[in-house]
Computed example of a mutant assay.
Amino acid sequence: MSENQQSQVRRVTIEADYAGQRIDNFLLAQLKGVPKSLVYRIVRKGEVRVNKKRCKPDYKLQAGDLVRIPPVRVAESNPLPSANLDQVQALNQQILYEDDLLLVLNKPAGLAVHGGSGLQFGLIESLRALRPDAKHLELVHRLDRETSGCILISKRRSALRALHEQLREKTMDKQYLALVRGHWQAHVKFIAAPLLKNTLKSGERVVRVDAAGKPSETRFRVQQQFANCTLVEASPITGRTHQIRVHALHAGHPIACDPKYGDQVFDAAMQEIGLNRLFLHAHRLSFKHPQSGKTITVDAPLDKALSQALKRLPA
């Protein structure tokens, strides 16, 4: 979308493929390069109209809606974030599976999945910058910034809806590898503990087990036992913020090098063997393809930091 096109009011008729999408998310995709705060401001001020009426940011679009998009100053192009240029361009080498409707990528640790909280660019913004012709790239689910591994991106609204349905129906299978403190008892295979999320004034999210929280369930299975720690496979049944990390802590086995929920003594021992990141990795993702219905299973290899740490652990 050029600067010149943005100097005039645009009126867009919503196609069926966008039905059900929130107006704020639609605008963020249409107005690439515009700060999120400005998008919400023009909605609040009534400059964005749906069928000639004011709307709220959470309005869900319907097929045939006529959306008025006001003139907004947009960056001349969708530039790559210069601070992390190498990391962004390296994302192409992290793609594990791709077809016309979706892609699965092995997200590096330390990369947020989307901008916000002072970050202009996250994974999804970086992919959009790398692929300016791909107009409909959307996150299907999220991973914590510190977590690496499989993340699913849709290329069409129809695929996004179908994949979100699988998440709601709990038919999408996500499996993580986590290195935890101590000896995990093999008979502890299931943790059901409600999780309550608090957002601090700084914007930081902190989660704890609390009876007032949302129902949350995770399956655990021992993969390998070491002298002072255990490699476990964790499969979240629900999808709460920081779920695996808090459930592991609740079981008495915090994850190695967790900056929010970790154990300082254990983490110091892990740092001595060279581990300087959260040991939580989404290593396998299984889902039904939204078009063919076939089961797709994608595996993401451990990065060098995690694989090297496992080799250095005493048995």
Results as ranks from 00 to 15, higher is better:
His187Ile: 02
Lys189Glu: 15
Phe190Leu: 12
Ala193Gln: 09
Pro194Ile: 00
Pro194Cys: 10
Pro194Tyr: 06
Leu195Tyr: 04
Leu196Lys: 15
Leu196Gly: 10
Lys197His: 08
Asn198Pro: 04
Asn198Glu: 13
Thr199Pro: 02
Thr199Arg: 14
Thr199Trp: 03
Leu200Asp: 06
Lys201Ile: 00
Ser202Cys: 07
Gly203Cys: 08
Gly203Ala: 12
Arg205Phe: 05
Val206Leu: 14
Val207Met: 11
Arg208Phe: 02
Val209Ala: 10
Val209Lys: 09
Asp210His: 15
Ala211Glu: 14
Ala212Pro: 01
Lys214Tyr: 08
Glu217Ala: 09
Glu217His: 14
Glu217Ser: 06
Thr218Ser: 15
Thr218Leu: 02
Phe220Trp: 09
Arg221Leu: 05
Arg221Glu: 14
Val222Tyr: 01
Val222Met: 00
Gln223Arg: 13
Gln223Val: 15
Gln224Tyr: 01
Gln224Met: 07
Phe226Asp: 12
Ala227Asp: 14
Asn228Gly: 14
Asn228His: 14
Asn228Leu: 04
Cys229Glu: 03
Thr230Arg: 12
Thr230Leu: 03
Thr230Phe: 03
Thr230Cys: 02
Leu231Cys: 08
Leu231His: 09
Glu233Ile: 02
Glu233Trp: 02
Glu233Arg: 15
Glu233Gly: 10
Pro236Leu: 08
Pro236Cys: 08
Pro236Met: 08
Gly239Lys: 12
Arg240Asn: 10
Thr241Arg: 11
Thr241Ser: 13
Gln243Ser: 09
Gln243Ala: 09
Gln243Arg: 12
Ile244Val: 13
Arg245Ser: 04
Arg245Cys: 01
Arg245Asp: 01
Val246Ser: 09
Val246Lys: 12
His247Val: 01
Ala248Glu: 11
Gly252Trp: 02
His253Glu: 06
His253Pro: 00
His253Thr: 09
His253Leu: 04
His253Ser: 06
Ile255Arg: 04
Ile255Pro: 03
Asp258Gln: 11
Pro259Thr: 12
Pro259Tyr: 13
Lys260Gly: 08
Lys260Leu: 15
Tyr261Lys: 11
Tyr261Arg: 11
Tyr261Glu: 06
Gly262Leu: 05
Gly262Ser: 09
Gly262Pro: 02
Gly262Glu: 06
Asp263Arg: 04
Asp263Gly: 05
Gln264Leu: 06
Gln264Thr: 11
Val265Ile: 13
Val265Ser: 12
Asp267Trp: 05
Met270Pro: 02
Glu272Cys: 01
Glu272Thr: 03
Ile273Gly: 01
Gly274Ser: 04
Gly274Asn: 08
Gly274Glu: 07
Gly274Ala: 04
Leu275Trp: 00
Arg277Asn: 06
Arg277Ala: 07
Leu278His: 13
Leu280Cys: 01
His281Trp: 11
Ala282Leu: 07
Leu285Ala: 12
